[in-house]
Design a protein around this nucleic acid. Sequence first.
DNA 1: ATGAAATGAGACAGACCTGTCTCTACCCCG
DNA 2: CGGGGTAGAGACAGGTCTGTCTCATTTCAT
Lengths: 198, 198
Amino acid sequence: MAEEPAEPGPRRRPSGRERISRAAYELFTRYGTQAVGVDAIIAYAGTAKMTLYRNFPSKDDLILDFLRRRERLWTEEWLRAEARRRGTTPRGQLLAVFEVFDEWFARTDFEGCSFLNTMIEIGDRDSPVRQAAVAHLANIRAFLATLAAEAGIADTDAFSRQWHLLMKGSIMAACEGDAHAAARARELGELLLARYGA
Amino acid sequence: MAEEPAEPGPRRRPSGRERISRAAYELFTRYGTQAVGVDAIIAYAGTAKMTLYRNFPSKDDLILDFLRRRERLWTEEWLRAEARRRGTTPRGQLLAVFEVFDEWFARTDFEGCSFLNTMIEIGDRDSPVRQAAVAHLANIRAFLATLAAEAGIADTDAFSRQWHLLMKGSIMAACEGDAHAAARARELGELLLARYGA
DNA sequence: ATGAAATGAGACAGACCTGTCTCTACCCCG
DNA sequence: CGGGGTAGAGACAGGTCTGTCTCATTTCAT
């Protein structure tokens, strides 16, 4: 949910790898990693198929690249940055997560959390792709734990897991069509903050 | 999570349709509706492919049958029955949901909520399969709203949506591997009950 | 400008998917 | 016993998927 800098020069066409990576990001976020084939990606990127397979050994490697890009653009540059920016206190930054979610859920192209979607789409627990998605979810929790520590909460692990539970529950509710899912989670969040004395 | 009655006679082999429906249930719950092909289903059921297509116009119709069966076996005969049985008060029956979930999450063959999984797997919002999954999720909420009304809660819609949010969040956390996801949600549930004066 | 590297375009292989069709055999009820 | 509905087995069509290969063209640094 941020834009790329024009990579090397001032107005240069991005490399084939970069265009494929961006195309995969657009299509994977919207339609899921399993529903989108490599042919759709190269058509969207305007490249040849060999450009994809010269840069990525397999589609799975492209999905791993997609998850890393998602963490950078969504987790870090969007969610974390916006929460930090909107909240004046650690407590306010935690609650700002659901303010950000509220706008996210209202987008017409809202299609859920790519990490959760990928985890569910990949049934095999041993798949490196699924394990990567789970690891990226844990990185979201690491940010929550940081905020919890700054808010003076003692058990940051328990708190961040519960806060993340609210986030995931609200995302699923939004996927179902609940327009007020973020506000419902925010109210639960306030109860949880009070419970932890923050 | 209940067993079928031996349909007509005392020890008769179930009909082809019934065997296919049961096989689809086993495989779809475990691996997802998109990952399992009709060939795997007929092999598991021990039937011919034409037996499937004589009884179900398409795979999508088989998935719809699967979702209905899931509602009967999981939502009604398992979740609702166990919550009713374990709790002595409406409040206790609500909290018993997470007691039941705790045992569910610990199962080695735990593979999440089939309604959520199907909703995510089917990207197309207009798909009848996805809409059916969403409708089955709403039926879970209807049960929660009944319990909320019995517990004397005024806004049963808001409450049931928040309780369901906790359930869905805990399921996602359990899919990630959190062994204590049910206990975390239960604690949030107690805060919510207090907030609603129950 | 020139040679090396990257890219575009598309055919192709092999696997898998849904759904159709045929043919044979069984089973059950009258 | 006999006949009609049901089931099993498997070939088949038509599509999609990932991944490989070839070859002409472009692009870039030297």
